[in-house]
């Protein structure tokens, strides 16, 4: 049905599941602080066991993102980073043998401006495996879904705590690669605790779909990754990682040092899934 059996993202989750394993999916802002560092971070994460990663394409007005990710976007854009650079970054990572399944997290503002077909062709060609468009809900995704599928890209969709039960099933039915389950109503950013209700909702949804489910938003510590992975296939950590990269940059750390610091944190986060 999906025609995505060869898709690296689909394959990765299938392999993880048959091995009885869970995963950590880090989020990185493409081009923050520069192309070379993002590429080095991907290779480093891969060596630490990361199999799936989200790469955020910087946007001027990311309404679903909190201050940490927004300021990384602003900083990359101020340095002149473009969507075309993000494609080049992934192409370079693939030609250097990079094997993480990569999901482009990108605003529909950018996709629409570029033309959805063109954007998707470029993304597939560069070596992305999936796309996640946080501002393209089910109602608006009708024309987009087949365009992604035709190019072998998994269209990852979000379910929120505010999504009614019936709609969760509908979204799950359209979603490819994995379902991105948003843990809290609000924006991205580190939080101390995950709502119990989310864990219950995911447990419930688990019984209705074979598609992998990852939980994201607010996850910032290894214990939270462990909790999430009791019910889900993976945990997504964004702001907490980007925050460490931003701190390292602020302290004037070298590229190697930035990568090492972010990498060590990812090792702590991924430990509960290994």
């Amino acid at each position: 049905m999906s025609g995505l059996d060869d898709n690296r993202l689909v394959r990765t989750f299938a392999e993880l599941r048959s091995a009885g394993r869970k995963t950590l999916s880090p989020f990185l802002t493409a081009g923050f602080p520069d192309v070379e560092t993002t590429a080095a971070l991907l290779h480093d994460f891969e060596a630490r066991g990361v199999k799936v990663c989200e790469l955020g394409i910087p946007f001027s007005d990311p309404i679903a993102d909190g201050p940490t990710i927004q300021s990384s976007f602003t900083s990359a854009l101020d340095a002149g980073f473009t969507t075309a650079d993000a494609m080049e970054l992934v192409r370079g990572y693939r030609s250097a043998g990079g094997g993480i399944a990569l999901v482009a997290m990108v605003s529909y503002s950018i996709v629409f401006r570029r033309d959805a077909s063109r954007f998707l062709s470029e993304a597939a060609d560069a070596g992305f495996d999936g796309v996640l468009i946080p501002d393209l809900p089910l109602e608006e995704a009708g024309e987009f879904e087949p365009l992604a599928a035709e190019r072998g890209l998994a269209n990852v969709m979000l379910i929120a705590p505010t999504t009614p039960p019936q709609r969760r099933l509908q979204i799950a039915g359209h979603c490819r690669g994995f379902i991105y389950y948003v843990s809290v109503a609000g924006i991205t950013g580190e939080r101390d605790k995950l709502p119990e209700a989310t864990i219950e909702q995911v447990r419930e949804l688990r019984g209705h779909t074979d598609t992998a489910i990852c939980i994201g938003f607010g996850i910032s510590r290894p214990e939270m990754v462990r909790t999430v992975c009791e019910v889900a296939d993976g945990a997504i950590v964004g702001s907490a990682i980007v925050h460490r990269i931003a701190d390292a940059i602020q302290q004037g750390a070298s590229r190697d040092d930035i990568v090492a610091r972010a990498g060590e944190f990812v090792s702590e986060l991924i430990e509960p899934t290994l």
């Binding site: 946080p134 501002d135 393209l136 809900p137 969709m157 929120a160 505010t162 999504t163 709609r167 948003v182």
Partner: peptide, 12 residues
Amino acid sequence: GGMFVPETLVSA
């Protein structure tokens, strides 16, 4: 027109 918003806002 349309409704290009994060899923969290759709029910609101």
